[in-house]
Design a protein around this nucleic acid. Sequence first.
RNA 1: GGAGAGAUGGCAGAGUGGUCGAAUGCGACAGUCUCGAAAACUGCUGUACCUUCACGGGUACCGAGGGUUCGAAUCCCUCUCUCUCCGCCA
Length: 423
Amino acid sequence: MLELSYIRRNPEEVITRLATKNFDAKSIIDEILAIDEKRRSTQTTLDGILAQLNKASKEIGDLYKLGKKAEADELKATTGKWKEDITTLEAEAKKIDAELQAKAVLMPNTPHASVPKGKTPEDNEVVHTEGAIPELGEKALPHWELTKKYDIIDFELGVKITGAGFPVYKGKGARLQRALINFFLDKALEAGYIEIEPPILINEDTGFGTGQLPDKEGQMYFVGEDKLYLIPTAEVPITNIYRDMLLDASILPIKNCGYTPCFRREAGSYGKDVRGLNRLHQFDKVEIVQIRMPDESYKALEEMREYVGGLLKSLNLPFRILRLCGGDMSFASALTYDFEVFSAAQKRWLEVSSVSNFETFQSNRMKLRYKKDKDKPALAHTLNGSALALPRIVAALLENNQTENGVKIPEVLVPYTKFEYIS
RNA sequence: GGAGAGAUGGCAGAGUGGUCGAAUGCGACAGUCUCGAAAACUGCUGUACCUUCACGGGUACCGAGGGUUCGAAUCCCUCUCUCUCCGCCA
């Protein structure tokens, strides 16, 4: 949620910047400013009447104490009309606040100046490419064939147990999952992230804090009986740890990492995109989250970008980094880098990480603030990134490293898998 | 699932319907003392919104939402959450 004070001071700037996200903000800003005007005048009037009432109440108390009952009763009789006004004005103020909130929540975050204009993924800007694309022979298999050949991931069995998009990992497949999770967590620890194991079910307030609710409700699994949602990413519970907090600046930056399963309904996405590991309803991911002072959040974003790139390099996967265009960015993000690895048998780029700076968009919803010395409390900046999401990494590892002797495990992972080949 | 207790400022913990934004202690901050520190002493110490060029002034907030009252942390109702005991259980 954008800060109202920012919209009020720079309406033109907000309109210009949101145009990059193909969002026409003109009319909604006019509405917001008009409601805000009304809100302030209502409150000024209301506060004035309340002040009068408070003053009279105090006098009545004093008069009773002095035994001047008649005078007190007389004064008491005059308060009736104020109370009526108070009731109406309070109801009005409440309605106005709700209207304002309802409008404010509809506005996406303003993109950073470096975000390219554009509507579709084709308009994303490739900012970095690294690693050689392997030459596979004629007989190269896509990962869904390899998983079957070596019996390491069973998609049909998942259908039996749960449904499509919930694979069962078996034997070396399961061990590879565990190895990757541990490898990613160890790397994050080395980079100074504190590990968190959060709940994977969240309540409504938490979903609102990071921006999943109310508009992306349909993307999350919902446990109706307890009104809880399954997390789509660890970002949600980890960032919300700091909801409604006033942090002392001395404890910033906060750097957290965490492994969780992630659950996504992926309503409405069918077709060849969903083959094999490309798109699942449940998958494993290690996430990194940072809480930063505003003046260093972009430095932190670059640091996270470096970090994620380093992970992919160590796994020897060819990858590219995209700066997402306005049209492809998420609602809440100000700047997002996507990481894509090349999956050599499918001959496709697969998104394995998304690293974003949300500036104050999430912290404003969450009331996540910091206080530096004697300064007034201010909203902190939140950032997060996948480091990394497993399934597509596994897809690329299987396809790119397939040999006649089986799939070769990257060197850095062998201490974790304790085997060198899947065969 | 059953029974009971509770929710107050950064933390701990008082609070009679009016002088309670709230005692007291701890912590934090500033000062005195000291070469410096500790101790001691003194002072100060919430957030949000409105208003003012500013100094300042006003309003709200004692889990949340309603109600009674001229006036509610205090009385009434509803809800949420936490804790303890019992049952069940990885």
